[in-house]
Design a protein around this nucleic acid. Structure first.
Lengths: 205, 205
DNA sequence: CGCAGATTTGACAGCCATCAAGGTACGTGG
DNA sequence: CCACGTACCTTGATGGCTGTCAAATCTGCG
């Protein structure tokens, strides 16, 4: 049995669902960019992760009814909804499915805890360099890249909200990276010019 | 069938295992305090969570061979090791077990992502207030508390390493909390004197 | 008592935030 | 075609939260 899928879309800035809502489906992004975030009552916003085509919004949604994060579309997006009860029925009779869901949770936890380390212990330069490298790696896996030019729909506000900085400071750091010949960012496309140096700044290699 | 359990112990400061090691067991803390952490090559350390009696070190260990974090004992500890292969055999023939593991992963991810929000978007005062409240809540659940005096084996260095601050600044904030009559901390025991105010500082309620 | 480790306190510095003023790009409508 | 508005980015000046360094004090313990 295959679980029923419902396909939907959303426009940029549109919220797909909110923290605290009861969600009856597991969502998978099929096209575009989105992000998961937590918003505080005074307006401060922390982005938890960016979602690319193929990403499950969160493995925890298979086992939790209430979402602990909100989701917003960054570009035009399309996504699939799979009924949670259906999915779990399939998983129960399918060892490989349980295995995959478990691995998914493990990877998500690792990502989250490396982000904790970034936010707690790394400088603005390190965080931004690592974000860029992380995104380009994920885009490389999707093989949509031509000549190292990556589609890059993020505003400085988004980068600020995932790195725990302000948009102004993000602009300064990105400007410094550009002037140092590390990256180029024009027309919604990012080019990594000096990956080695960016990795050194990010504390990799 | 019940999976084999091996019981062991460790002394304060002793590392139980390291990031990158291949771990063949799922660990459960039976007694004492420990913490999970990631250490950078230059010595910076980020604590991911404190472990109390009854805590599984991490749900992701059921599905990942290599640990992405290290674990160190904070006090004298005792813990159980359950062979991963055994555990998974049991889980495969036991729907409730899969369910429990899934819920465990979901809770861990929620905790991790709320910590991300703390680190990215909250001030030192907020982070420390929330840490104290989080720990006292968890200790309350364990019903080991007498007259609101909580065992508190953390050094300022540990608080610094989970809040992304320095020990000196942690000392200043804790000193301010003490002088403001919010908490008392003597002889390894913590007393929350004014919980309401602490919650207000932490952005709760 | 004496030592080692932890905490407290003070002076100072730096990273990043805040506030504010342009500048640029792009779409809209006259 | 150009004025205009909006959103975003850039740049400068200033400030504050937190870090760094260092010394003094406290605490536990052999």
């Amino acid at each position: 049995m295959v679980p029923a899928q419902i396909h939907e879309g959303a426009r940029p800035q549109e919220n797909i669902y909110f923290r605290g809502e009861t969600i009856e489906s597991v969502y998978v992004l099929c096209f575009g960019w989105a992000f998961r975030f937590i918003q505080l009552s005074d307006g401060r916003r922390q982005i938890l992760s960016f979602l690319l085509a193929g990403d499950v919004f969160s493995g925890s949604m298979v086992y939790e009814e209430k979402s602990h994060f909100s989701v917003q579309a960054l570009t035009d997006v399309r996504f699939a909804r799979i009924d949670r009860a259906d999915l779990r029925r399939v998983a129960n009779s399918n060892y490989g499915m349980v295995e995959s869901l478990g691995k998914l949770c493990a990877v998500e936890q690792k990502d989250a805890e490396e982000r904790i380390t970034d936010l707690g212990r790394r400088s603005a330069d390190e965080r931004i360099a690592r974000l860029i490298l992380n995104l380009t790696d994920r885009l490389d896996e999707r093989e949509v890249v031509r000549e190292r030019r990556y589609p890059f729909p993020l505003r400085q506000q988004h980068i600020a909200d995932i790195t725990g900085l302000t948009p102004v400071h993000v602009g300064r750091v990105m400007g410094a990276f550009r002037k140092a010949g590390l990256i180029d960012l024009t027309g919604g496309f990012l080019t990594v010019i000096n990956q080695t140096k960016l990795e050194r700044i990010g504390g990799l290699k």
